[in-house]
Computed example of a mutant assay.
Amino acid sequence: MQRRRTRRVVAVIVACVLAVVLWCAWDSASVETEAQGAMSVRTAVLDAAMQCAAVEGAYPSSLSYLEEHYGLIVNHSDYAVTYEAFASNVPPSVVVVPR
């Protein structure tokens, strides 16, 4: 009787430790995926701006111009994008932050 109780307690402790380890691994993976997604969005915005500069001879003044004329799609509900164009001959500053 005593051995059964000890085995159950050990099994519950092992299950709890395993659950905590898996939860921490999942959380770490989701943070990494979120950061990679933000980097991909930033790269897509900069690529579209470079394409615009190559075709039109100047960098666009706004993110909405890229979305309207160059087919750029940004998920604004998941990412906050700051697009700052200093001059038409200077690449824009792009910052993407996951929400």
Rank of each mutant, 00 (worst) to 15 (best):
E34C: 08
R5L: 05
A58C: 11
V97T: 15
T82Q: 05
T82L: 04
L66H: 02
A38Q: 03
E56T: 10
A44S: 06
L46G: 09
V95I: 11
A11I: 08
E67N: 14
V55C: 01
S61N: 03
L72M: 01
A35G: 04
T43V: 01
L72V: 04
A29E: 10
V96G: 01
A48C: 02
E34R: 15
I73F: 05
H76C: 12
D27R: 11
V12L: 00
V55K: 00
V41P: 10
L63R: 00
G37A: 10
L63V: 01
V17E: 11
L18H: 02
R8N: 09
E68L: 07
S93A: 11
V10A: 03
V74L: 04
P60S: 02
V17K: 07
P98F: 09
A35C: 04
G37L: 06
Y83M: 13
E34T: 14
L22Q: 07
S28F: 10
P91C: 07
L46I: 12
E56R: 15
V12I: 01
V94M: 05
V90F: 06
L72N: 00
I13R: 09
G57M: 04
L18R: 01
L63I: 01
L18C: 15
G71T: 02
T6R: 11
A19K: 10
S62H: 06
A87F: 02
C24I: 11
S61Y: 00
E68N: 09
S62Y: 04
V96E: 01
Y83L: 07
V74I: 08
C52Y: 08
A85N: 08
G71V: 03
L72D: 00
E84V: 06
V74K: 09
L18A: 08
Q36V: 13
V17F: 15
R3E: 05
S28N: 12
A25Q: 14
A54Y: 04
A85G: 10
A85W: 15
G71N: 04
W26E: 15
R4E: 10
R4T: 13
V41I: 13
P91Y: 12
E34W: 11
H69W: 01
A15W: 03
T43Q: 02
G37W: 15
R99P: 06
V96I: 00
T6Q: 15
R4K: 10
V74T: 05
C52H: 10
A29C: 12
E68S: 05
V14N: 13
D78R: 14
S77H: 05
A87R: 05
L63T: 02
N75V: 04
V95D: 08
S88E: 11
A15Q: 02
R8I: 07
A29P: 11
P98H: 04
V95M: 14
Y79I: 08
T33R: 01
P91I: 03
A53F: 14
I73H: 03
A35H: 02
Y59P: 09
T33N: 00
A11V: 05
S77V: 07
G71S: 05
V95A: 13
H76W: 06
S93E: 13
H76R: 07
L63F: 03
V55P: 02
E34G: 14
T6S: 12
Y59K: 14
P91L: 06
G37C: 13
A54S: 04
D78W: 10
C16I: 14
L46Y: 12
A53D: 15
R5W: 02
V12H: 00
A35Q: 06
